[in-house]
Write a protein that binds this DNA or RNA. Structure first.
Lengths: 340, 340
DNA sequence: ACTGGCACTCGCTACAGTCGAGTGCCAGAG
DNA sequence: CTCTGGCACTCGACTGTAGCGAGTGCCAGT
């Protein structure tokens, strides 16, 4: 059965009021606050239909209505009007990001900015290694049997790792090793390096084989397996704002989820082409997050996407505002990255 | 007025029971659970004195007694018996830390381990740069006007930073710059580098002056001013365990404090010679932490201290157990660092 | 198709009464 | 002088009852 325009307007009004007041909203206060042009009784009939269809529900008989996850979903998909950012917000974003000196700094500032603007928990993924290319590999001798491997990606990320060699290696040999790995790997997508790393062992001079074998193991770990992704987090204190009414009383599951990098990566890291994604309550596969919503998007220089960012809050959140903010911040960060 | 041995025993019993049950403890249940050898009435008299002296208090008239911050302090200073770690715990520590591949990994594993063993929030400071020495400086050309500066400290920490040169520089000149900075700075305590960095500009060949001037600015920032300290955090979900009874209802101030790196550094970073420090409730200068206690200590290879670590929990916490764990973990990590 | 009216539901608050853990104090024993 | 048993008292926690009011569903009327 179709929902006519007025019913949709009623749903929209319910969502907006509930988000604003955090209290179940009744038919009378609805017609008072919004210009619906009909009487409370009519609204009640509409509400009955909306409830039957699963968009709203009553916490108790004879209480007002509250949107369900499904209701929020409909609201987000079809009812929310875009909320343009205020000039003050735009300025805040520019000012905040302008002073960044390098990638680490950009990520840190971004995550704090997001948390502050949305007043929610913000998560930013460092530019994904899988999507980066090798810009340079450096081998720094620490002792005769120890090297520091430093990998610099074109996204600005730098990873380092200690290499314990099986036998002492001369300084000149280190230079040879360095030349070799750079020749073969610079410019290559990290995700495509494994076969090339294998080949390195065959290509190199026999007396370097043992060292190169060890080095290649570490290379593989650094480039592909380990640390794969890094995250920055901010604004956890915002979770404790809503007087413990959100998140049905306990922050524990949420805090636990936030400590699981794997979960967070799934949430904000799985980015399709530049779309913004909203996951509401139930829609999160992870059980601990059934009381939360996540707004996430990808970011990167130009059209390419190098990582994800997003915010997490109660299902009862200001979707239009949050969506606008996340989208704007991601675009600014993308522009910033494009400049380098 | 002095507190005789029995009164101290009563205080100890109150603390132990309250920590275990989280409920105000009365005279009757006290004598039942502990072998005090006297009647409830006697205990009541002792309690009256303890209350007068400010070691315990009554939440309401005719409720049991609860330790005050001052009571916990006395308990920690004079009454707690050392709780040796269980063999299982020792094994857990060893196993957990054994697999670490580099400094980052050590810090991450340590902070998780601490959080898990104490079931509280754990904080670990990365080896402080101020206490480290320069092991090596590397300059990686990114383009003709851009260098990546990589600093490796003897504690294993690696910092990197992008340098934007005022004018293009030849590859050979980069090598010269690298030789120069390494000659002058390797082996020097980071906190003592500023005058030497200044001198670098004078020492270098005239045509390198502009580049070296820029480089020296970045060097100073990297070595001394910026990022000075880093932290790792884990176990925030543990805050939400005690059913919101701890922390007088709101986690907000605590979560806020945990986001302020400066505050955390003050808490665990100010380490005196290898002592373990316990701050109970009020004793924290930071207001948001008046409902919390912090157990912290320094760590480092051998007798040197390179950083701090600690845990944060409700004032009502198992002090002996926590202290033992923190101390043990710090020692293990110190040994691990000494091996490198 | 909408509206006004009406009976009904049910959570919230206030109030009274009971219960019991725990206390302070006192007189008496060791 | 110290400890103990006894006793009256306090006060929070819990229970049950009652009234209020926001909000609903339904129905008859326009």
């Amino acid at each position: 059965m179709g929902l006519d325009d007025r019913k949709l307007a009623v749903l929209r009004a319910i969502v907006e009021d509930y988000v604003a007041t955090q209290e179940p909203v009744g038919s009378k206060s609805l017609v008072e606050r919004h210009q619906l042009g009909v009487s409370p009784a009519t609204v009640r009939n509409d509400m009955a239909v909306l409830e039957e269809e699963g968009y709203i529900r009553q916490p108790h008989t004879s209480a007002g209505r509250v949107p369900t996850d499904r209701g929020y979903r409909l609201f987000v998909d079809r009812l929310s009007r875009v909320k343009p950012l205020s000039p003050a917000e735009r300025r805040a974003i520019e000012r905040f990001l302008a002073g960044a000196v390098d990638l680490d700094d950009v990520v840190h500032r971004t995550v704090r900015l997001l948390a502050q603007l949305t007043r929610q928990v913000a998560v930013v993924q460092y530019p994904s290694l899988a999507r980066s290319r090798v810009r340079h590999l450096e081998l720094v001798p620490i002792s005769t049997t120890r090297l520091m491997l430093v990998m610099i990606a074109d996204t600005g990320r730098v990873e380092q790792r200690l290499v314990e060699l099986p036998a002492p290696v001369l300084a000149d040999d280190v230079l040879d090793l360095r030349r070799l790995v750079n020749e073969k790997l610079v410019g290559v997508r990290l995700s495509e390096t494994p076969p090339l790393v294998q080949a390195l062992i065959d290509d190199c001079a026999p007396h370097l084989r043992p060292a190169m074998t060890t080095l290649s193991t570490v290379l593989l770990e650094t480039l592909v397996e380990r640390h794969e992704e890094r995250l920055a987090l901010a604004g956890t204190a915002n979770l404790a704002r809503g007087g413990l009414l959100d998140f049905q009383g306990s922050l524990r599951p949420i805090l636990e989820a936030l400590e699981e990098e794997v979960v967070l990566l799934k949430l904000i890291g799985e980015v399709e082409p530049s779309t913004l994604r909203v996951r509401i309550g139930d829609e999160n596969e992870y059980d601990n997050l059934r009381a939360a919503s996540v707004v996430s998007t990808g970011y990167g220089p130009g059209a390419t996407i190098v990582g994800g960012m997003g915010v997490l809050g109660p299902t009862r959140m200001d979707y239009p505002g949050t969506i606008a903010t996340v989208r704007a911040v991601a675009r600014y960060v993308g522009e910033l990255l494009a400049q380098n």
